[in-house]
Design a protein around this nucleic acid. Structure first.
Lengths: 224, 224
DNA sequence: TGGAGAATTATACGAATGTTTAGGCTCTCT
DNA sequence: AGAGAGCCTAAACATTCGTATAATTCTCCA
């Protein structure tokens, strides 16, 4: 058995860094935690279960695709409050809500907040599993683009301030001559920096560099 | 008074092509149609009201930012079915659901389908107005980007097949020489086409052209 | 048959780009 | 003080890009 059951604070991330996914379960009822864990483990998903939102917030989130399955009604922080809290912390783990006594405004608020699904008891196991698959898949994709952006950003951070300025203007479509005028440099200096930018950003072509600037959200306000 | 009340099949689009917005109301109850129309008109919104989904589908959608306010329970096509139908027709008008006897799965399905809000009776007028403002704003933005893309596409369509091919490869970062080899042309020919592409696409710089290719989703599978 | 109009290539030239080699300058750290 | 790093410039050269002019081939159409 790979997955764990319902003990808080375990280091799940050390188990399977491969293509697996982790499902976080939060419910104050131990028997529900156990049955959900069994359900997920039966389809080869790793599980980390907690009895309250606070317990989960204390631990770290893994670097693997994951999602959150929780009851709306929880001791301490409620499910919706946890959703708000995670959003504030910029943690975008997909959430699947489960509730026994929810109402429509509650579900609408959850969905507006980006929840993947909002299930009412009793639900069919397959419904929950489908939602979990959709959620982890969404998380996997999000992590993918986030990783790409982070890689680009780390490359961009290695540029000196001058090099960054040149990259902005070049990506905006200015000629070396214009970049030089803008930064009050000699054209030859711009050429040098431009070459260094290409090397440091590992851009083979100008098209690559422009696309990188695009995904990094780098926009120079080209004057005139 | 500019807005109309609850007569179907009126030509609303001829009224105010400016920055106004139109709210489509669908409800089988005449008095509700009337009161919703009054509410929206009181905040300077144009209204077009219908008694059933079919009546609304027969008319054309305006070129102005708009949204749809409808009851889930309707004669003939239900609200959710209308949502599905509009999605099939590739009509992305934002929808606000109102219901007196809805349940959670219904609201979740609506929200998953892209609904802006799902209100339960009784609701406060301000809630509905807020939702309508959010919806029309979303529609305005969507129309904006759609229009941009459409404009680019119409420019792209004026290119000959050769010119389109050259644009793809140039946007992919290939040099004129490589483009020529790829298309089995002389380099000078590629230069000619490239110049024509820049003119026809109204791209001042290569950066512009690459960004246009990006938003048009033009990607050449660069070999090697 | 003649011609208009494309698609394509050639020649030639000016402008822009990229790289190398070689320096000078200022700042910080040791 | 010296070493190193970052910033800036210069000269020289090869490559690439962009455009203008002219010529070839081909199809389509009157």
């Amino acid at each position: 058995m790979t997955g764990r059951s319902d003990l808080p604070h375990q280091d799940v991330k050390a188990e399977k860094p491969s293509g697996r996914a982790i499902v976080f379960v939060i419910d104050d009822d131990v028997s529900i935690r156990r049955s959900l864990s069994n359900l997920f483990q039966s389809v080869n998903l790793d599980v980390a279960a907690f009895g309250s939102a606070q317990e989960m917030l204390q631990g770290d989130l893994p670097e693997v695709a994951s999602c959150l399955v929780l009851d709306v009604r929880l001791p301490g922080l409620s499910g919706l409050e946890l959703q708000t809290e995670l959003a504030k912390l910029n943690l975008h783990i997909p959430i699947i809500f489960i509730t026994g006594h929810g109402d429509i405004p509650m579900s609408v608020k959850a969905m507006k907040g980006g929840a993947v699904d909002f299930l009412t008891k009793p639900y069919r196991d397959q419904e929950l599993l489908d939602a979990v698959v959709a959620a982890t898949e969404r998380d996997r994709k999000r992590r993918e683009v986030e990783k790409t952006v982070a890689n680009l950003q780390s490359l961009y951070d290695t540029l000196s301030s001058r090099e960054q300025a040149v990259m902005k203007l070049v990506a905006a479509g200015l000629m070396n001559k214009q970049v030089a005028a803008e930064l009050e440099l000699a054209e030859i200096t711009v050429k040098i920096y431009r070459g260094r930018v290409m090397k440091k950003m590992r851009a083979r072509t100008l098209a690559d560099l422009i696309r990188m600037a695009e995904t990094l959200g780098i926009c120079a306000n080209h004057p005139e």
